[in-house]
Nucleic acid binder design. Sequence first.
DNA 1: TGTACATCAGTGAACGCGCGTTCACTGATGTAC
DNA 2: TGTACATCAGTGAACGCGCGTTCACTGATGTAC
Lengths: 235, 235
Amino acid sequence: VVQSARERARAEVTKDILDEARRQLAADGAPALSLRAVARQLGMASSALYRYFASRDELLTALIVEAYDDLGEAVERAERQVAADEPARRWRAVCQGVRRWALAHPHQYALLYGSPVPGYRAPERTVGPAARVPLVLSGILSAARAEGSLDESPFPVPEPLSSDAAVVAAAAMPGVPTAVVVRGLVAWTQLFGIVSFELFGHTKGVVSDGEVFFAQSVELMGRFIGLSMSLDEFS
Amino acid sequence: VVQSARERARAEVTKDILDEARRQLAADGAPALSLRAVARQLGMASSALYRYFASRDELLTALIVEAYDDLGEAVERAERQVAADEPARRWRAVCQGVRRWALAHPHQYALLYGSPVPGYRAPERTVGPAARVPLVLSGILSAARAEGSLDESPFPVPEPLSSDAAVVAAAAMPGVPTAVVVRGLVAWTQLFGIVSFELFGHTKGVVSDGEVFFAQSVELMGRFIGLSMSLDEFS
DNA sequence: TGTACATCAGTGAACGCGCGTTCACTGATGTAC
DNA sequence: TGTACATCAGTGAACGCGCGTTCACTGATGTAC
């Protein structure tokens, strides 16, 4: 792949812009991010940025995609470090991965999972990256089910319901019963719920040790899903 | 209580300002709320607002307190409409109350439970109103425990953990075992997690019917807590 | 290999807008004697 | 009951700031013959 000087320069400047935008996002949060500030820091005219991003929203979108991918990669990496045939450990690794990434990147987490930016509509290309964590989770469920270690008994779902709401999610987990899919979705919302609450300050004055509470939550929700979470493996 | 004309006028103008601010918040979201726009709508000079609120942050705080109280009241009202000695129904009522309020007031919900406003620190006086929903939840747990209908078996918590993290929350529920308190906290984070996900668009393309999924979630988490959720009572 | 033309990155000025907050002031309401 | 003074709501101008986006332009890089 041969790149002309122009192409190389373009790639480099694009990267510089993203780097600086990411830095400002991490430092001051998404609402404070401005094209002019980025340009100023890079020593270029603010109008020059329009050669690279058509608008502020496009820059925001690039940062969102980046953040989803960064989170997805961190979570996938964490999962890869435990044995593939031990769903309980994979579940723990994924949950801890999400929390750790969130604590390390609070403003990017808020950009992804906090209040939607008013007037901003997420374009199609954020969907794929946003699906990485859910995909990892459904992989764990599928694997546990396949190897027969999934306890399907604890929580039967009233029938008229189970058939309905989770159709789309179920497509990612062929063979997994709908009742289990629903439990997985509930655990998914709980995972991000607890992380958001900790990060956004809602557990202040309620929970004394966020890390310990989170670890407990992971154990409990793991069992809720039907994974075999042996107590002695818990560290 | 006799009010001078001045006092009456002051109370009225204060109310007008809050009404208009609430209207703009509900319409465009917190980031778009500006003192100048409020003043403009009321036909007064923007500087006049400073006789009533020392800064934009103070106005925001007033709106936050108001929103917490509105949510708290809605939830308490919903709970009061079911029998006090049926914890399962109370749990359902409270969850539905939270979701309904959130759907009816998305921007206020986002103000309370979305990304923290950068640079804004919530003052003490938001703490009480913010605690209303958690208090209602802990009341349900306490009542269920007191009447002996709480199943404490399903999820034992590893011991080194249970003693630690939930001390503060446990104080609101004397007599309730720590393991149960932790389960309650987990359910609490799940409740707001699922509502946030629905409201902020993270279940789009995953869940087809938000209402049905939520109802299932409520049943499952009710059982997770240890409440006796009889299937046939489910509507 | 050299020339003519097209493409493209970057500039700097400008448009049009909005914001929070301060300050000296006017005039009305309230209070003390 | 009437007067002198203090309190307070509201005004309008100003400060100082920042923003996203457009546009005509320069000058360098790339391309076709």
